[in-house]
Amino acid sequence: MNEFKYVGAELELFASANNWKNYIKFLLRKYIKGNVLEVGAGIGSNTRLLSSSHYNNWLCLEPDIQLFNQLKDLIALNSITNCYSFNGTIDCLSDQQLFDSILYIDVLEHIHSDREEITKAYQHLKADGNLIILSPAHQWLFTSFDSAIGHYRRYSKKTLKAVMPDELKVIKLAYLDCVGLFASLGNKLVLKQSIPSLKQIKVWDKFMVPISIKTDPLFGYQFGKSILLVGRKRF
Rank of each mutant, 00 (worst) to 15 (best):
L67V: 05
Y175Q: 01
P196C: 09
L176R: 00
N130I: 13
C92P: 00
W20C: 11
S144N: 14
A17E: 04
S226R: 13
K172I: 01
S51K: 02
A9M: 09
Y122N: 09
I24W: 04
Y221W: 07
E116G: 07
Q200L: 15
A9N: 14
Y221D: 05
K126Q: 14
A76V: 14
Y23G: 09
E3G: 05
K25Q: 08
V203T: 13
I211G: 10
N35Y: 12
N2I: 08
G220H: 11
D216T: 04
D114F: 08
N19K: 03
L37K: 01
Q96C: 13
L185D: 10
Q96Y: 14
D106I: 07
I65G: 09
K172H: 06
N187C: 07
L93F: 03
K21G: 09
S147T: 12
D177F: 00
S101Q: 01
R234W: 09
S52M: 11
Q139C: 07
D166W: 11
T119I: 12
V170E: 00
S94P: 07
I111V: 13
G40A: 10
D177C: 04
L59S: 01
K5R: 15
K33D: 11
I111N: 03
H151Y: 04
K30R: 11
W204T: 03
G231Y: 05
S144F: 07
P210C: 00
E167F: 06
W58F: 12
R234Y: 13
H112T: 13
P63D: 08
I80E: 08
A9L: 15
N56W: 00
I132D: 06
Y6P: 08
N69H: 12
K202D: 08
F142Y: 10
Y175G: 05
L131G: 00
R29Q: 13
D114W: 04
G8C: 05
A76T: 10
A15C: 15
D177L: 01
T215M: 14
E3P: 05
H151A: 05
S53N: 02
L61R: 03
I132G: 06
R232I: 08
V7N: 10
Y55K: 06
L61W: 02
D91S: 08
H54V: 12
Q193T: 13
K157C: 07
